[in-house]
Simulated assay, not measured.
Amino acid sequence: MSTTRPPAPGSGGPLLAGYFVAVPEPVTGAGLRFERLTTACDCLIDRLPEDGCWFATPQEALDACATVPVPAAARLYALLIPAEHIAGVVSDIRAAGEYEPVLLAHLDPPAGAGAAPEPAAGGHELGWEVLGYDCGMIHSWLCNSLHQDAARELGVTADERGLLPSRQPAERLAAWANARDDTKPVTWFPAALVEWDAPVEGNGVPAAPADPAPSPTPWWHRLLGLDRP
């Protein structure tokens, strides 16, 4: 397991939003082609134990997955958001009326709650993405079909995981997306993903193979015209 520690929170630095477990997967269609798409977006890859699960600590995330079949490719992730973007994220979460308790506890703690938590040791920064919160879901610039325009107008492209290499292009992309009028009505923000290398395993439940038998196409893939290879 990597021992690289993400930068500690500070003025303007990234703050821990929460942890989640996800399964990177190949995605093609609608102009998207990624070998191992990895994202905090609710509508592009599978989350465990079910879509939309955020956890306050790594142990809570691992405990929640302990009684379900877990694919071998599943990993633990943390989402970090730069401090100056927190107010916009919190505003969108509260305006949606579908609160995310974990996200709000980390990003908008009650008075006297103390310093913001730091990511657990052992993770490594995987890359950056651009996200927006809308009606209880976190959306990505990728599920809003912005990737082709971003490549043409900004020269910004994502790697095989659908991630950007650093904060700078993510900041540029977020500002550009916020100036448009053809996306989800969200406040776009840059965010970093931290990954832990160790596989996530269920207690007493054998992990599923890395390449399980084909399953029915998720509704979000059908909605976006995405097909798994």
Rank of each mutant, 00 (worst) to 15 (best):
A64K: 01
A105T: 05
L224S: 01
G132L: 06
A8D: 01
L107F: 01
E118N: 03
T183M: 04
W141K: 05
P110Q: 09
P101W: 14
R172G: 13
A121K: 14
L48G: 02
A177S: 08
G114R: 05
T217D: 02
P69C: 09
L146C: 11
W141R: 00
P185W: 11
H147Y: 00
L142K: 13
A116L: 13
A66W: 04
G162L: 10
V200I: 09
P206Q: 03
W176K: 07
V200R: 08
L223W: 11
V68A: 00
P82T: 13
P212G: 10
A207I: 08
P26T: 14
S145M: 14
E35I: 15
G136K: 01
A74R: 02
G13N: 06
C143Y: 12
A105L: 06
A78W: 01
Q59E: 15
R172E: 12
E25I: 10
H221L: 10
V89W: 03
G31A: 14
G29N: 13
A111N: 13
A210S: 10
S145P: 00
P101I: 15
I45V: 13
A191Y: 00
V21S: 09
A210H: 09
Y19E: 12
R5E: 08
L164I: 11
P6K: 15
A96M: 12
E50Y: 09
L103S: 09
C41H: 07
M137S: 03
L131R: 09
P117E: 12
G12P: 00
M1S: 12
A177Q: 01
E100D: 11
L80N: 03
T4S: 14
A78F: 02
G13D: 07
L48V: 03
A179Q: 12
A116C: 02
A87M: 07
P209A: 12
K184D: 11
P199W: 01
R167L: 14
R161W: 00
D197R: 04
G155A: 06
G18H: 03
G225A: 10
W220H: 13
W141E: 08
L164Q: 08
S2W: 14
S145K: 11
V194C: 05
L154C: 12
G88A: 08
C43N: 15
